[in-house]
Each structure stands twice: as structure tokens, then as C-alpha cells.
């Protein structure tokens, strides 16, 4: 597989860890998992889910009700 930019932008003392395709796939998989979790708890329209996380939603200033 091809290599993406091989140096991180801020990597002065952490030089040249390759941001390989495999790593990018892992990163996006992790981000998708995060979106799925936050979306499920904070944005689900299912009434029981809303009620369970009610105080959390208000406290995080998510759109609620």
C-alpha cells in the first residue's frame, strides 16, 4: 500500500513515524467508533436512551428534548 506523508506536522522530537495507510485506517476506525458512541448516547431519539442520559445531555449542552 502507498505511504501517506511520512512525517507528522509537529514531529520535531518524534521524527519520522510513518503515517502509513494501515495507521490511517486504524485512526479512522477509532474516530468512527467514537462518533458511534457519542451519537448513540448523546443524540439518539429513542425515548429510553434520552431519559437514561438526560442529565448528561443537559450538562454537556447537547440539544435535548
Amino acid at each position: 500500500m502507498s505511504m501517506l506523508p511520512t512525517k507528522f506536522a509537529g514531529g520535531a522530537n518524534d521524527a519520522a513515524i510513518a503515517l502509513t495507510t494501515a495507521r490511517v485506517i486504524s485512526i479512522f476506525a477509532a474516530a468512527l467508533l467514537g462518533i458511534f458512541i457519542v451519537g448513540g448516547v448523546g443524540f439518539s431519539h429513542i425515548e429510553a436512551v434520552h431519559n437514561a442520559a438526560h442529565d448528561y445531555r443537559h450538562s454537556m449542552s447537547f440539544p435535548c428534548h
Partner: peptide, 17 residues
Amino acid sequence: TGIGFALLLIAASELFG
């Protein structure tokens, strides 16, 4: 959701080193 936000934060930061 702490874990969910952590996944988003770490994923974003890994893209930038």
C-alpha cells in the same frame, strides 16, 4: 461518552503526530 470523545480526540491528534 468520555471514551467516545477520547477516541475522537486521539484519532484527530494521531493524524497530526
